[in-house]
Amino acid sequence: MSTQTTSEDLELNQLQSEAEESAAAWRASRSGHGGSSAERLSSLDTLESEAIHIIREVVAEFEKPALLFSGGKDSVVMLHLATKAFWPGKVPFPVLHVDTGHNFPEVIDFRDRTVERLGLKLVVGSVQEFIDRGELAERADGTRNPLQTVPLLDAIQHNKFDAVFGGGRRDEDKARAKERILSLRDEFGQWDPRNQRPELWNLYNGRHTVGQHVRAFPISNWTELDIWRYIERENIELPSLYYAHEREVFARDGMWRAVGEVSQPLPNEDVITKLVRYRTVGDMSCTGAVESDARTVADVVVEVAASTLTERGATRADDRISEAAMEDRKKDGYF
């Protein structure tokens, strides 16, 4: 017997131990007690892989896709996934921002820095310009979120985008719970929930005729908590208002509204300084802050996991208007 271990021996030993390990993992998974978690993809890895698959499918099958980018956390995660999908190449499509004109300045700043950092083209559809031209009327309640549909469709048409990525998630709303991953829109941008294509396996059917376009939702299956865990894991930068900060606010409709150019307190509404953060980022005039001391992403993960309110219920006045608010807007071509 040789005292020297040959490289073949080592390789053989290694192969044997690998085979034993994988057999053990297999038995564990078959026995129904779950193998060791290290051997399997975590739910975040699975969701990430699914999203990247969808992003690549859309880029491969469509002529001119674009990604809706508001600077909100879901669109930031979408853009991060796109950078991973095409690494080391550039993200091969422009980003589209529908600007309500009611922005948080730090979000616009973040948007511009991000576009610069990734070398992307930014297309802006401006609600203000439509109002100035008299093509949209300001609502009595001052909210501009519902007004985004017209500039969105206009930008899609003018730029001939045939696929538009959105960060919509099915856990956000009961209308979104019925949304497809690839969702066909007609010439008017309308969603027809009664007439959707069945979506089978991981085979996505993006065929469309002239004038139609497709909305693609690669993170459909993510929850708010998944988004935050992923932001933490990937160390993704977000606009600072997602984290706890001191802000001048006043109470309206059971939410804390920021004091700003487009969001002024009425005489009977007292302005106070509070430690708050935002769970969603939208039109400043209708997006509320929540009281929070979550200053870091880890704090936010804990807070979201323990939250007893849905993110839209807690922070979006426009979704409180009626039980079917989101459904009605989606049918008209909203995100």
């Binding site: 880029v59 190449g89 550039k90 950092r117």
Partner: peptide
């Protein structure tokens, strides 16, 4: 066990090509 776990254990590697990544100088600035 999830279907993914069972499929990962299969011996027959299958990989349908979605697209070719070939930046040709257009590398991601980040």
């Amino acid at each position: 066990p999830a279907a993914d776990e069972l499929e990962a254990e299969l011996e027959s590697f299958r990989f349908p090509v979605q697209l070719v990544i070939r930046p040709q100088g257009a590398l991601a600035p980040d």
